[in-house]
Nucleic acid binder design. Structure first.
Length: 842
RNA sequence: GGGCGUUUAGCUCAGUUGGCUAGAGCACUGCCCUUACAAGGCAGGGGUCGGCGGUUCGAGUCCGUCAACGCCCACCA
């Protein structure tokens, strides 16, 4: 083809130019006529679209993109979809703040509702349907912004394969998978104590917990034994004394053995509670006796369940102590309780300390401590434990065989890097309850069930009404089950819809099924599942990776992917993990604007899997400089002849030597990519490329200008090398490589074949020639540098001392060395390698 | 309290199965407008490989131990 090379190549504008071209030409469009063994399927993480992308996401996605591009060039059809995780609490919270609204499910739908331009203060109450509509509006806008960033960054995603975790297809997939779990007995509902966020007023799962160090205080409190003795406990939660159902000590604790079987009365309230024994009581903690409350912590739940204790709960879903005194508190006890009624736990704690002091049951002053307290990871106040009906999926926590199967899946999975596998093992080993998937929220996938109401209006939870699969997705709170009339909703003898939604992980754990269309396109499904890789961050091994493995194991009895690649953290320059709460997050957009997409990609690609990487703008600059170098070197190498020269013209020893070295680089880069070590592939290409431009290109420059067969050999060698370098860099620097490829080749570089050794057949020589000539050239340069003269300064004589075989190598490229050195003559002598240059005097 | 990872030049990082004077880029110093590239090129200085102790002819590389940093897990009395 005719070459068209700009006079002043620049990287500015390349992102927009090529993104548009790739889109219009369908460069990354998935060809579904390929079969499973020809396809490389990637289970991309759907980023949460509530707020802005940060560099941590860019880091991981670029690394994945280098894989995708390498595989696409290695004769694989790449299935590379992109999802948006838009359902769930982050979106709800963003909508509340963005518009100044709150959801009140009791309100009717207002079809004329128009959201305020500015956040409304105080928040406007709107119906659930209006609220959900706003969620859709806002996530739609966020998704456009996100797609734009990904495109600017050059992700080779097939943008026709996008999904959102709240769209109908995802909802249908999620509901169907849930119903399959239900049919097999893997999903069940239970009315039991759960960890509860009092602000969001929803249950949360074990995987969403985090512990934070909080200040607290040990209160030394006296209970009263049956013979009048005082039994001391230490507690950080004295406000729960009104919920106390027992005292507990270790069965081997001789101090308390005489008390087992007897009763004590609680201070202030005078409620009689048994003194019981259990191994979980730690003789070394506090006084060795603990009070069991319903419920202060998860240990309480264990004791309550295993010791078959009564329930005396006073904390409501909103976190406040219930208004009316509970039935087990009468008379004076009820009066004391009235002082706690309506308070939050922390307020009640102070009040209770006063009451204990008044009754003489508080020994000494509370002793302040720091201790870990469980929080919902997105929450602001400590979790409480309340009893409520929730849906669960079995995860092996209470089923040893399932746990063993899941551990075996973890062993079976190819972890990159391999040490990440232990995190999965630890998580599965440590599971202490089934997976709680129901949430008392609004914007999410509904639990697709109704319940029959008996004549008293009580729901029959054990025999839910299940929709036909072809009705999915279904919203039981607005749709009517078959055989019923809407007027029977919430009426005795009628039905009620399950009011809850599923947690976002219950849907995103199905990304392979969603992206691969398990539900509605079995032909596609067979071509892409199980997928090849799952790239993701280390923080969501316990959530996304585990849950996806679980769902796939239960539904398909197979691992969802062959390999999981786990990226590292982004650290700020002080080696602190970057996070929003620390306020050190910078958005990717400004980095791309300042340093180009290639610069940002270069930095991301230089972070190895599982290795924490500092955010360093110097790396962006280096990547940008490399991209510019590729432009200029390509311009030079293509400037000699307007047509391709066949490789049979490559006859000069130096040219063949260069190609021998380059063949080695191709091997190294290919091996590295096959082992998911994209960074090593980049480094190999980069190291080779810079020495190519600095040494080889300088050495052949004169010959290339001169004409003749030797000149044509250089042209052909430059072209072959350039073609190889452009493809080696294509996975990392997609815009600039596409640009330079377009100067002299048809089609996209990203659809070319990855360089192979067969391209070097018959054109390689002795790689050591270029090495030794480069060393000699470098020595001449040093002589000029020491003399503080221009590299163009002329040399009378180069005197080389070297071993006989080295001299033999040098002679084969003697003319090139003389030309690049601007030297008139060269003489050799045997000995230790040394080069002297006699400069022409001026 | 367990576990995983990291610790190599001022900075960011490579160092494959232990083997010649430990590497790269940036930063720093000096020189050079050289017709691909001055948002460049050439050359140079700079490190007791976290500490201690082992194995070995030989250790950045293996073993033990300690420390710092990061992360994950753990029943908040």
């Amino acid at each position: 083809m005719t070459r068209s090379i700009p006079d002043k190549p620049a990287i500015e504008g390349l992102e927009a130019k090529w993104d548009e071209r790739w889109e219009s030409e369908g460069t990354y469009r998935f060809d579904r006529s390929k079969t499973r063994d020809e396809i490389f399927a990637i289970d991309t993480p759907p980023p949460t679209v509530s707020g802005s992308l940060h560099m941590g996401s860019v880091f991981g996605y670029v690394q994945t993109d280098t894989h995708a591009r390498y595989r696409r060039m290695s004769a694989k059809e790449v299935f590379y979809p992109m999802g948006w995780d838009d359902n769930g609490l982050p979106t709800e919270r963003r909508v509340q703040n963005y518009y100044g609204v709150r959801c009140d499910p009791s309100l009717p739908y207002d079809k004329d509702f128009i959201p305020p331009d500015e956040p409304h203060d105080p928040p406007i109450s709107i119906s659930r349907r209006n609220f959900i509509e706003l969620c859709h509006v806002l996530t739609g806008e966020d998704e456009k912004v996100f797609e734009n960033v990904w495109r600017t960054l050059g992700l080779s995603v097939d943008w026709t394969q996008t999904y959102a975790t709240i769209d109908d297809h995802s909802q249908r997939t999620s509901q169907r998978a849930f119903l399959e779990n239900l049919a097999r007995g893997e999903a069940y509902s239970s009315d039991a104590p759960v960890l509860w966020d009092i602000d969001f007023q929803t249950a949360v799962a074990q995987a969403e917990l985090e512990e934070r160090e909080k200040g607290g205080a040990y209160h030394r409190v006296a209970f009263h034994g049956s013979d009048g003795n005082r039994i001391h406990i230490e507690t950080t939660r004295p406000e729960l004394i009104c919920s106390c159902v027992a005292l507990v000590a270790h069965p081997d604790d001789e101090r308390y053995q005489p008390l087992f079987g007897s009763n004590a009365t609680t201070p202030v309230f005078g409620v009689e509670v048994p003194i019981v024994a259990h191994e979980l009581a730690d003789p070394d903690k506090g006084t060795g006796v603990a009070m069991i409350c319903t419920f202060g912590d998860t240990t309480d739940v264990t004791w309550w369940r295993e010791l078959d204790l009564p329930t005396r709960a006073v904390i409501q879903y909103d976190g406040r102590f219930q208004a009316e005194p509970p039935e087990w508190l009468q008379g004076e006890a009820a009066d004391h309780y009235a002082e706690l009624a309506g308070l939050f736990a922390n307020q009640a704690r102070r009040k209770m300390a006063e009451l204990l002091a008044q009754s003489g049951d508080l020994e000494g002053e509370p002793r302040e401590i720091m201790h870990p307290v469980k929080f919902y990871e997105k929450g602001d106040r400590p979790l409480e434990i309340v009893t409520s009906r929730q849906w669960y999926i079995r995860n092996g926590a209470r089923d040893d065989e399932l746990r063993r199967e899941l551990l075996a899946r973890g062993e079976e999975l190819n972890w990159v890097p391999d040490f990440m596998g232990v995190r999965f093992k630890h998580w599965v080993d440590g599971l202490n309850g089934d997976w709680l998937i129901s949430r008392q929220r609004f914007f999410g996938v509904a639990i697709p069930l109704w319940y029959r109401l008996d004549d008293d209006g009580n729901p029959d939870y054990d025999n839910p009404i299940i929709p036909d699969l072809d009705r999915l997705p279904v919203d039981p709170s607005s749709e009517t089950p078959d055989g019923y009339d809407e007027s029977q909703r919430n009426q005795p003898g009628g039905f009620m819809g399950d009011p809850d939604i599923m947690d976002t992980w219950a849907t995103s754990s199905l990304t392979p099924q969603i992206a691969g269309h398990w539900d509605d396109d079995p032909d596609l499904w067979e071509r892409v599942f199980p997928m090849d890789i799952r790239p993701q961050g280390p923080d969501i091994i316990r959530t996304w990776l585990f849950a996806t493995t679980l769902r796939s194991h239960l539904e398909h009895d197979v691992l969802p992917w062959h390999t999981a690649t786990i990226n590292g953290w982004i650290l700020d320059p002080d080696r602190k993990k970057m996070s929003k709460s620390k306020g050190n997050v910078v958005t990717p957009k400004e980095f791309i604007d300042d340093y180009s997409a290639e610069g940002v990609r270069y930095w991301a690609a230089s972070g190895r899997p599982g290795t924490d990487t500092a955010l360093d703008v110097q790396q962006f600059k280096i990547g940008r400089r490399l991209a510019i170098k590729i432009l200029n070197a390509s311009k030079f190498a293509l400037g000699f002849s307007d047509t391709d020269v066949g490789v049979e013209a490559i006859t000069e020893p130096l040219d063949r030597s260069m190609l021998a070295g380059l063949a080695g680089v191709v091997s190294e880069a290919t091996d590295a990519f096959e082992a998911y070590e994209y960074t090593r592939a980049l480094e190999a290409a980069e190291r080779s490329f810079w020495s190519w431009t600095d040494d080889y290109v300088e050495l052949v420059k004169t010959r290339a200008y001169e004409g003749g067969a030797e000149s044509v050999s250089a042209h052909a060698a430059l072209q072959l090398a350039l073609s190889v370098y452009q493809r080696l860099f294509a996975p990392f620097l997609p815009f600039v490589t596409e640009e330079v490829w377009s100067w002299w080749r048809d089609g996209s570089v990203h659809r070319q074949e990855w360089p192979s050794l067969s391209e070097f057949d018959g054109v390689t020589g002795d790689a050591e020639i270029l090495d030794i000539v480069s060393r000699a050239l470098s020595a001449v340069r040093k002589a000029k540098s020491d003399a503080k003269v221009s590299m163009r300064a002329e040399v009378d004589l180069i005197s080389v001392t070297a071993a006989a075989d080295e001299i033999e190598l040098l002679r084969q490229a003697e003319d090139d060395l003389l030309a690049a050195s601007r030297a008139a003559e060269i003489v050799y002598s045997n000995g230790e390698f040394a080069v002297e240059a006699d400069l022409v005097e001026h």
